[in-house]
Amino acid sequence: MAKLISDLRPVYVVGIGFHPYQRSSDTSYVQLGLTAVREALSDAGVTWEDVESSYVAHALLGMAVGRPMLRHLGDSGRPIVHIENASASGSAAVRHACMEVASGISDVVLAVGVDKRERPEVYRASTGLPDLAEDSILPFTHFALLTDEYAHKHGVTPEDMALVAVKNHANGAKNVNAQRQKVRTIEEVMSRPISGSITALQCTPIGEGGAAVILASEEGIKRLGLDMGRAVRIASSAAGSERAGNNLNPDTALTADIMRLAVAQAQIAATDLDVLEVHDAFSVEELLYAEAIDICKPGHYVPMLKEGAWDIGGRCAVSPSGGLLAMGHPVGPTGIGQVGEITRQLRGEAGARQHKNAKTGLAHMVGVGAVCYAHVLMK
């Protein structure tokens, strides 16, 4: 029978670091990544020489970008693994770093995500096969259709659903690492339509940035004399890919499977979650993914949103970082940044964004609908 990470030795997040997410600039990816790594090392209280292995997540930069970045910390001779898994690249890096620590191979491991757009468009190799609708069904069109479907099914308005973006922009305004740091009214959010009722402020900005976490075993924490009081355990890690079928919303179907698996492995209920960070690249996604994990009954997310249930200080803080809508989505760092945000919340170090008495959180990302990752963290 296959082993789960939760069956192996405990893994803890002991250090977190960021380079603020931002619009495209002249900042090199090396500076973006190193800023995050150095902050994570300092936060953990470890040196680069203590790190036994590194996982570098990126999706937009090309081949083997970790070596010319990490060499500025010193040539340690330790393993470097590069991971590309679309939007879930950072989440995949965290999972593989977890597996290395949980298995006993290493005691201290780095997962770092870094990305910036070097080309106007994301390059993808041709499959050599025709695609009947590649130029017709773009991501925002797909999610605009899902928005209309949800609104009609549950009797809510597009303005009701846009309140997700209002909430997340308000959270992002309190986050020094967020790309969008401005409170928005519902009128502002509903301006500048992109497709159907989807507007510009209901779509994630894709810029650049860096995020890093240091993972460690109990043995590593004790050996290096780290502060166990600030360590946050990764209680479960679940991953999967799309199944065969003709589901027009594979992201949500896959999310339901993987998030429920992560919660079950952590031996909690979805309603036990204090903090939830989801892949809200479009506002409707937050509703779909949160309901997919059974955090509330289908169709109840919007009424509870209006009551403040998903605000910081409510029943569960959903996207307290600002989510992809306001925090941003530089791709490679995104999943790692979610883990960093939840760690900060569970430590009680989130300042103006602090959710009171946060003990349990879940980070969730999908990658082009084909893959999904979820991590449950517990204090």
Rank of each mutant, 00 (worst) to 15 (best):
S6H: 07
P10G: 03
V13H: 03
I16D: 00
G17N: 05
R23S: 12
R23V: 10
R23T: 13
S24N: 14
S25Q: 07
T27S: 13
S28V: 08
L34I: 10
T35G: 13
A36D: 05
S42T: 15
E49W: 12
E52V: 11
Y55Q: 03
V56H: 11
H58R: 02
L61Q: 06
R67Y: 14
P68Y: 06
P68V: 02
M69Q: 11
R71I: 14
G77P: 03
R78H: 14
R78L: 00
I80T: 09
E84Y: 02
A86I: 08
G90A: 06
R95L: 13
G104K: 04
I105N: 11
I105P: 00
L110A: 11
A111N: 10
V112H: 00
E121N: 13
G128I: 10
G128Y: 08
P130E: 08
D131C: 12
D131M: 14
L132D: 14
E134N: 09
S136A: 11
I137C: 02
T141D: 06
L145S: 12
Y150I: 01
K153H: 13
H154R: 04
H154F: 15
P158S: 04
D160H: 15
A162D: 00
L163C: 07
V164M: 04
N168S: 03
N168Q: 15
H169G: 03
A170N: 09
N171P: 01
G172M: 00
A173M: 01
A173K: 01
N175A: 02
A178Q: 01
I186Q: 08
E187M: 04
R192S: 12
R192V: 13
S195E: 09
I198F: 02
G207Y: 12
E208C: 05
G209M: 04
G210S: 07
V213K: 12
I214P: 04
S217N: 05
E218Y: 10
E219R: 15
K222C: 08
D227Y: 04
D227E: 05
D227I: 01
M228N: 06
M228V: 12
R233W: 01
R233A: 09
S237M: 07
S237C: 12
A238S: 15
E242C: 10
L248T: 13
N249Y: 11
N249G: 06
N249E: 11
P250T: 07
A253N: 13
A253M: 10
L254G: 07
R260K: 15
V263P: 02
V263H: 07
A266V: 06
A270M: 06
D272W: 10
D274I: 00
F282Y: 15
E285S: 14
I293K: 06
D294P: 05
K306W: 05
A309T: 10
G313K: 02
G314C: 04
G314D: 09
R315S: 09
A317T: 01
V318Q: 01
S319Q: 09
G323H: 08
L324W: 03
P333V: 08
P333D: 05
G335H: 07
G337C: 01
Q345A: 01
L346M: 05
Q354P: 02
H355W: 01
H355G: 07
N357K: 12
A358K: 04
A358D: 05
K359C: 04
K359W: 00
T360C: 09
G361W: 01
L362V: 13
M365N: 15
V366P: 00
G369P: 05
A370W: 12
C372V: 10
